Every structure is written in C-alpha cells, then in structure tokens.
Simulated assay, not measured.
Amino acid sequence: MQMNSNNQKPTFDWRNFKYKNIAVHVKTQEEYDNFMKECKVQGLTWCTGKEVDKLNLWPDCAYDTCIVHDNSVSAQRGLHYQRLGYYKRCGYEIEEFADFYFPKDYQPLNSNSNLIPEEQIELLEKPTTHTLKLEECFCEAVVTGKKCFEIRKNDRGFQPGDTIEFIPVSNGHPAIHVISNRRYRITYVLSGWGLKNGYVAFGIEEVKRYD
C-alpha cells in the first residue's frame, strides 16, 4: 500500500477494488458523490450499464452504503451497491472511503447535507417493488430464512435493491400465510451459469421494520 506524502493517507488501490472482494463504505452523500466521480474517471459503470454519475443511489442505504465491483463473467458485471452488513456477512474486505487518498482528479464536492440535489431529482431511480405469487409450500421456508433465493423468468428486470412482496397461493388460488405481511430485498442477481435462457436467480433478505 503506497502512502501519499501530502496527507499521509494510503493511495486507493483501484486494481484490488476491480479484481478482489472489496467493498468501499461511503457513509455520507458527499463521500458517495466523490467516489462516483472517481469511478467515472476509471471508466466504471453500474452493473446495469448506466453511467455512475447519472444515478444517486446513496439514499437507498444511506450511511450503510457500500459499493463493490463485480468483474465476474456475467451479465451483471460492473458496480453494485448494498448495505454494509450484507457485505460483511459475505466476507468482503471493507474499506472506508475517508481513509484513502485519491490522486489526480479528486476534487471534493461542496456538499453540506445528505439531501438529494434538486438537479438530480429527475435522474433518481428508486428501486422497484415487485409483487410475486409464491406457492404456499415454499412460504414457510422463505419466512424462516431457509430459502433465501428465487429463480424467476426475468420479465421484470430484477435488480439488486429492488423489494419483493409475496402473495401466497395454493395451486394458483389465494392462500393465507404471514409472508403476505413481510417485504424482502433482492441482494444479488445471477443470470446464465446453467440457468435457462431468460431466467435469473436472485438472493433475498427480509426488510426489517427499522430498515
């Protein structure tokens, strides 16, 4: 790790970020804005292919926001974001944005609040909430956490951060189950790798009330 003589901070290692399991924790809107600026300089984009400075996703996870780069051979290559606790559980190395020096083009933005700038309001894309039917025989496994994934036809453009509301059914007819009162968040989306063309597998976790 290289130290910068100007401020005695280590220089951020982009190679490690791009090719290793490293999550960058951006705990303020200002840190997020500046990290996105540096990601753009590096030619990185979101996993959806969208430019990093066209979306403000920080409010979704706020001070828990972490950014990772997926370099695997999949349709989801690029930047992903999720809560700090999620990447800790997945074994990622957590790097604090504030602990590093970003050379050359790094110019801190003057941001004194965590509010979304007015000029970004039209560009902000909130995660989508999907309502999905779920056979009653699977409901209990999802509620207890034993089944933490779904395999679905990707006709809705499922993305990490989207929320799921399940409608319990039995042989296609409405059923009663506590899962209908719960919400889940998509944590990861995978396509290919043995999945039928047009289908995806995605991880889910329950959205707690305090989230």
Rank of each mutant, 00 (worst) to 15 (best):
G43M: 09
V142L: 01
A175F: 14
C61W: 13
K208Y: 03
Q2S: 09
W46F: 14
Y19H: 10
E96D: 13
I179L: 06
K104E: 14
H130G: 02
R209W: 04
E95D: 00
L195S: 01
N114D: 12
I116L: 14
V68Q: 02
T11M: 11
N154P: 03
K208Q: 04
G192A: 05
D155S: 12
N21W: 06
F35A: 07
M36T: 12
E119H: 15
L124Y: 04
F17C: 04
G78E: 01
K20T: 15
P59H: 06
Y106V: 04
E30N: 13
N6L: 13
E206N: 05
K88I: 14
F97V: 09
E135R: 07
C137D: 11
G85L: 08
R15P: 00
Q8G: 03
E125Q: 13
K18Q: 11
L84V: 12
H130W: 11
R182P: 01
Y188K: 13
N110F: 10
D105G: 08
N71V: 03
E135K: 07
G91H: 08
N7V: 15
K54L: 12
L55R: 12
E95T: 02
W14Q: 08
G145A: 04
H80K: 03
L55P: 04
G49C: 06
I179P: 02
A75Q: 06
R77V: 06
Y210I: 03
W193M: 03
V73G: 00
E122C: 05
D155G: 03
H25Y: 15
F158K: 01
N4E: 11
R152G: 05
L195Q: 05
A75F: 07
L190M: 09
R152Q: 07
D105K: 15
E136Q: 13
F158M: 05
I22G: 03
D70H: 02
D60V: 11
E96Y: 08
L57H: 07
G49Y: 04
A62L: 03
M36G: 07
F158D: 01
T11I: 15
V26M: 08
D33L: 10
G91F: 09
F166W: 00
A23M: 05
G145E: 00
G91W: 11
G85S: 15
C137Y: 11
N16M: 13
I186V: 15
R77P: 02
E51V: 13
S180F: 03
Q8L: 09
D105I: 02
P174I: 05
D53H: 09
Q159N: 09
T11H: 00
C47G: 12
F202Y: 07
Y184Q: 00
T131D: 09
E165T: 07
P59G: 07
Y101E: 13
W14R: 07
G49P: 06
Y188A: 08
G161S: 06
K147S: 04
L132E: 11
A98H: 14
D155V: 11
A175R: 09
C47S: 13
T131A: 13
Y19S: 06
I67H: 01
Y106G: 01
P160N: 06
D162V: 02
I116F: 00
V26W: 10
F17Y: 07
Y188S: 10
G91R: 09
K9E: 01
L79K: 01
D105F: 12
G203I: 02
L115M: 14
K88L: 15
Y184A: 02
I94Y: 10
M1F: 05
G91I: 06
V73N: 09
E119L: 11
Y92W: 04
H80F: 04
